[in-house]
Design a protein around this nucleic acid. Structure first.
Lengths: 343, 343
DNA sequence: TTGTACGCGTTATCAA
DNA sequence: TTGATAACGCGTACAA
């Protein structure tokens, strides 16, 4: 049988409630009994039953993590382990555990979340993505359950805790940078349009083009999933156009990897023939050939800040929704070059 | 206030215990009351409190996942999300949730595990690595707590559930393959020596060399962490030798990425000057230049089988320790070539 | 400063 | 087939 608070109480010659107070380090217990009780705990190898505690407490000391529904290999993107590492770091500081959903489809994940929430498994939830009209976000919002979004909520933006980069600005800067190198035919390879991050970055790109009085061409914007194949596909589409872009903005390093591979295959040189710049600055960016210029978005910090924000929301339920912006920074490597005028 | 089993009972005009039986779909409850109770549950939006259930049940319907202590960027290796996806898939089938440790150092993680176990948070644990003399494994073993190791336990191998590839054989095959291409100076870039997987693969390599009557050179084996920098370092070390190897076996794709980058930088061509083959067949293997030959180890299956094994161990505590071997397969791409005799 | 008694929301045992 | 009632292990008023 497992050792309970009662066993400790018996051994220490005190009441169970006293033991409970010692665990909570209540100030109204004498040092002497504290020592006595702690010795008994030590001796018996006592550990509190967290379920019993949760039940009495109505608090679980656990956070739920919701990943996007994983169609295919999206989750192999190192983005996710890295955010989770950030969340983990903060959670550890405050002695919170982490809970993962196991569903694959959107519907399954939704059920997982409901179970987590209504089943009292977690005190709060981190959403690792922000999609347009997301059922799960909507549910949490309606339920007024503590949660934080990594990314920017599409609706009720000001009423929902969220942590994000300034993606509009980041995309604008990236585009400006390419323009400053002399590029005018700039392609934009984005994620799927249901993700808010896609919408934001696209907006930054468009704005920069407009400000520079460059034409916005519909056929230069391509929406794809965050996997390598997407990069390949995008390159193929560009090849079918009359004019291939001279520079490409890719919204994820993993996709960019596919782009580089496809270009290499076609004998299109980077950066001589086409410049490429992407987002996230994953570790691989340093190891592609040529090394990939990429926007550092501080993934770890996104996770850390999200957890931080969520914990505050849990401790102070009435707090106003926070919007935290994590810094970004262009990391320039070898994949971009001034436009070569060779006509 | 949350809606409990009592509220449902009241609305349905039955006793709480009856509601409980309906939830468990007990066969000794009339269809009529079942329907009645279910309607009440529906109407009130009832969801069971999982903590209360766990308390009464002594079962949590949750599995714990223990990752290796993350010094630096090791966890950015897509290996981890992929195993977890496998575990997730099986866990979902049996309606188990997943718990993550949040500690960073080995000591912290150990505490996490103790808390998980003694705190009754999980019914079993998956260890995502196998290290020599691992404190956590030792603890679980002593405690007789249900757990499964992904990898091969160093001690008590036959007494511990584990899921692994046949790494000795895999490394032997890889080495044989290179030998068959005419290579004799074959370098081996391994993980750290405290990991059992390193020991096994090294053994396969050595055996193949011996069987082929090729000399085993100490300076050709390099131990490193599973990150890209390691690949770079390894190449540097080889360069300091009198004879650079003509082929390299790398025990992880991420390290191989670093190797390829370093070789490229040095102007050493792959596969003309040196052949490279590695392990894990991550998605990136397809997108390096040249595309990387790699051993598919079926990471997803490792996770899936581990969860499967663990769940059986949980349901049948007295079952004998299982050892499951997951298939591997060499995937040949462009990074290996016959030895060029150019002297 | 400490002990008593009850509640947290379930499941399980024993009657009916 | 169903209903009381007692656990499960802990926290916390309230009392002492």
């Amino acid at each position: 049988m497992r050792v309970t608070i009662k066993d400790v109480a018996k051994l220490a010659n005190v009441a169970p409630s006293t033991v409970s107070r010692v665990i909570a380090d209540s100030p109204r217990i004498s040092e002497r009994t504290k020592v006595k009780v702690r010795e008994a705990m030590e001796q018996l190898g006592y550990h509190p039953n967290l379920n019993a505690r949760s039940l009495a407490n109505k608090s679980t000391q656990a956070l739920g993590i919701v990943m996007p529904s994983a169609t295919g290999k999206v989750l192999q993107n190192p983005f996710f382990p890295e955010v989770i590492r950030g969340i983990s770091a903060k959670a550890y500081e405050e002695e919170y555990a982490l809970y993962l959903t196991t569903g694959q489809t959107e519907e399954e994940i939704f059920e997982d979340v409901v179970k987590m929430v209504q089943g009292n498994r977690v005190d709060g939830i981190v959403l690792l993505y922000s999609r347009v009209d997301d059922q799960i976000m909507h549910y949490l919002y309606e339920k007024q359950f503590p949660f934080v979004v990594i990314g920017k909520p599409y609706k009720y933006t000001d009423d929902i805790h969220h942590v994000d980069n300034d993606n509009v600005k980041a995309a604008l800067e990236v585009t400006d940078y390419l323009i400053s190198l002399g590029h005018e035919r700039i392609g934009f390879i984005a994620g799927t349009l249901d993700l808010v991050v896609t919408i934001d970055r696209l907006q930054g790109y468009e704005r920069a083009m407009r400000l520079a009085n460059l034409p916005y061409r519909n056929e230069y914007t391509i929406f794809q999933e965050f996997v390598q194949e997407s990069g390949k596909n995008a390159v193929k589409k560009y090849l079918s156009l009359k004019e291939f872009p001279t520079a490409l903005i890719v919204t994820d390093d993993i996709m960019a990897l596919g782009v580089l591979a496809a270009l290499h295959e076609m004998g299109i040189r980077v950066p001589q023939d086409v410049s490429v710049i992407s987002f996230n600055n994953l570790m691989i960016a340093d190891y592609t050939q040529p090394a990939l210029s990429s926007v550092e978005v501080n993934i770890f910090d996104l996770g850390y800040e999200a957890a931080n924000c969520l914990l505050q929301a849990i401790h102070h339920p009435q707090i106003a929704a926070k919007q935290i912006t994590v810094n970004h920074e262009m990391i320039l490597r070898q994949s971009c070059a001034p436009l070569q005028k060779n006509d």
